[in-house]
Simulated scan of single mutants.
Amino acid sequence: MDLMLNLNLPPASHTIDHGQKVLSIGSCFTEHIGNALKDLKFQVLQNPNGILFDPASVCHSLVSYMQGKQYGPDDLFYYNELWQSWNHHSRFSGMDQTAVLEKINASQTEASAFLVDADWLIITLGSSFSYRLTADAPHQQGVAPFSPPTGEGRGGAAVANCHRAPGQWFQKHLLQITETVELLDNTLHQLFYRNRKVRIIFTISPVRHIRDGVVENNRSKARLVEAVHHLVNKFDRLHYFPSYELVIDVLRDYRFYAEDMVHPNYLATDFVLEKFLQTFMSHETNELVGELQKLNIARKHKAQHPGTEAHQRFLKAYLEKCRTLQHRYPNVSFAEELRYFAGS
């Protein structure tokens, strides 16, 4: 008896291995996947601007990396006793303007160098809703010019994060499918010109944006799905991974969501990660992933009596396992694990 819908995911035509660089950008869901890949020793740089939700913000950020943009005082605004950037998450905000700019520009420099040499770019889109500054916003915002395509909702500069500023400062715009396609298409052409080897994985975040409304959230997600598939069918270097469908159509149960009934919980994200690894990793890479998962569990083990012979045997056994893996996979560093299990 089948108690859940099966979504058949064939292996990808190209796979990710530990020798490749992966840049992930987009919604908070991409950080779950990115953190998991980091724990599994993949070379990952994630969200250099912080969490981004809509295609306009994602494209603006990617273009800024390609252009090597450096931010100055005019690119910041002062609100709630903090210097902030409309293009960055609040984790970059701070009371010292110089420190904020140093942090932003260090991230920009790292992202610029990483993207031009990246093997994979994972883009997780969360919402079709874009926010633009209105005439009610203070005049000296210091936002770098960013003109959305001509059409419905054309207005002021698009912002990636509203920083809890007054609602009247922004115009909320539901991007049309054609707008999203144009934004992404232009960005990809620029990227492919600078990086001729990069492959791109698109995925749609299963996080529900209920504040927009249930119906509006579904309209928003539908537009993202349609726009992304238009591009995937156009370029052979683009792939689609169904994170959204795995949670919404396969799991489809609130027990796989956190208490807010909006964010997928650990079980759900772990399920999606498992499917991702099966789809985009080779058999050999997944073998190593299995060993790394065991090591991570062992490192999290808290011994009640660390001085016992039993615990020392435990450490010694995993130390030998690390040495064996280091010999077998010389391009992957097990230095942290070796130090931990050696007791140093």
Rank of each mutant, 00 (worst) to 15 (best):
H18L: 00
D17L: 04
V44K: 08
Q20I: 09
A56H: 01
P11E: 06
G19M: 07
L62A: 12
L7A: 03
Q46E: 05
C28Y: 10
G34C: 11
S61I: 00
S27Y: 02
A36K: 05
I25R: 01
H32E: 09
I33P: 09
L7V: 01
K21T: 02
P11N: 14
Q20T: 07
A12Y: 12
L37P: 01
S13W: 14
T15H: 15
S27K: 08
F42C: 01
C28W: 00
L5G: 09
F29Q: 06
S64N: 15
V44R: 10
L37R: 08
E31Q: 13
P55D: 03
T30K: 09
L7K: 00
L3R: 03
S64P: 07
H32N: 15
H18K: 11
N8Y: 14
D54V: 06
L9I: 15
S57D: 09
L52M: 09
S64A: 15
Y65S: 05
F53A: 06
K21S: 05
E31M: 15
S57I: 06
L62T: 05
L45H: 12
L45P: 05
N49P: 06
A36W: 08
S13K: 14
I33R: 03
L37Y: 11
V22E: 08
L5W: 12
G50R: 00
A12P: 08
S24M: 04
P11G: 03
I16V: 14
S57G: 04
N35A: 13
G50F: 06
L52G: 13
T15M: 14
D39L: 06
D39G: 04
Q43G: 03
